[in-house]
Amino acid sequence: MKIDLSGRTAIVTGSTAGIGRAAAEGLARAGASVIINGRTQARVDEAMRQMRIAFPEGFISGIAADLATAEGANALIARAPDADILVNNVGTAFLRAYNGIDDIAAIPDEDWLGLFQLNVMSGVRLSRHYLPRMVGKGWGRVVFVSSESAVNTPKEMLDYGMTKTAQLAVSRGLAEAVAGTGVTVNAVLPGPTRSEILGDYMVKQAAENGITVEEAEQGFLQALRPTSLIQRFATTDEVANMLVYACSEQASATSGAALRVDGGVVRFVA
């Protein structure tokens, strides 16, 4: 299968590192003009520099904007009013130890609300701008980067899991709203991945315990994701492969779906 996105413009939020960066590179490799996004200008500039070296024939631009706020979303929209592809990737999580219900009870309102603003409302705000324009053109792709935590709620990250489940509801509802228009909306559900947040956490755990990063990852899987079938962390490129496919012409019959790249963590067939 050869995916060709020449002539398409793609926005990938939270794309200076991790899964978003891998998705931006995959889309650029397929020929799309890519707009990367990060919270600070320094990170955006460095990511653009690296990507322009990797893809000298491509068109790479960047917009610094904090998408946890309506103002940040409006700033991005003002600079990039039109797009054919929107990958709602930006998000974060608070990695905590779990020792019982008291840990959940101690999660403050600002953590719940902060994660909801970034992980969910960023995608809502951008989708409600770009989707009508895609419908008007008769073609478009919107993809939400959710998580296996959306359907396999983690007690150690309950607030995060809530936002990822919300993304599934939003993505399915938007897919229903644009049915028959040539525009598709899907969600991709990664499992444990060597992304910036979880990868850095594994490096820290390895250093604190005097073990290798691979041993730290195995300890994480055994303790928290023992149902993994691949029995390792996925790479960001492996997740990006699914994202790029969901953005392609070849995925024209896939909409309203939750596409799992979870390494088999979730123990049901659907």
Rank of each mutant, 00 (worst) to 15 (best):
A166G: 00
M51N: 03
T165F: 06
K155Q: 15
A169Y: 11
S146I: 12
S15T: 11
G219N: 12
G136N: 05
R194L: 14
L27C: 02
L5S: 07
V90E: 09
M157G: 00
P132G: 10
T69I: 04
T235Y: 04
G31W: 03
N88L: 13
A234R: 09
G140A: 05
S248D: 02
E214Q: 14
A64Q: 06
Q250K: 11
R29K: 15
S15D: 07
D102F: 06
S252Y: 03
T165E: 03
N88T: 12
A240E: 07
G191T: 01
A47C: 06
V143W: 00
G26T: 07
S147R: 14
S195V: 12
E148K: 08
L168Q: 07
A207E: 14
A68Q: 06
S147V: 09
V124Y: 15
G14R: 13
I85W: 00
A73D: 04
A150F: 10
G173Q: 07
S33N: 01
R141L: 11
G161K: 00
I19T: 02
A75N: 11
G114N: 00
T92Y: 01
A30G: 10
T235V: 02
A73V: 03
T40Y: 07
E208N: 11
G161S: 10
C247T: 12
V239M: 05
E148G: 08
R39A: 14
A206E: 05
A65M: 04
L118N: 01
G263D: 02
G191S: 05
E215C: 07
L67E: 09
V142S: 04
P81A: 13
L113H: 14
L259D: 06
G182M: 01
E46K: 15
R39Q: 13
V188L: 15
F55S: 04
V266E: 04
L115W: 11
M242Y: 08
L221P: 10
A22Y: 03
R133M: 04
C247W: 03
G14Y: 08
W112K: 05
W139L: 01
A270G: 13
I63E: 06
Q117F: 09
E46V: 12
I107E: 04
D237C: 00
R52A: 05
P56A: 00
A246G: 06
V143R: 04
W112I: 10
A246F: 11
A105C: 04
Y245T: 02
H129R: 00
V145A: 07
Q250P: 08
H129K: 00
E71N: 09
I53M: 14
A75M: 12
G18P: 09
N99I: 10
L158C: 06
N37R: 07
M51F: 02
L174F: 15
A80R: 14
W112R: 02
W139V: 03
R267F: 12
R43S: 15
R125C: 05
S127H: 05
A270P: 15
A253N: 09
V87F: 11
A187I: 08
S195Q: 05
D109S: 15
D262C: 07
E176N: 13
T153E: 01
M121I: 02
V87Y: 09
R39M: 06
R125I: 14
T181S: 15
A216W: 03
V261T: 09
V143L: 11
T236I: 08
I60E: 05
G263R: 10
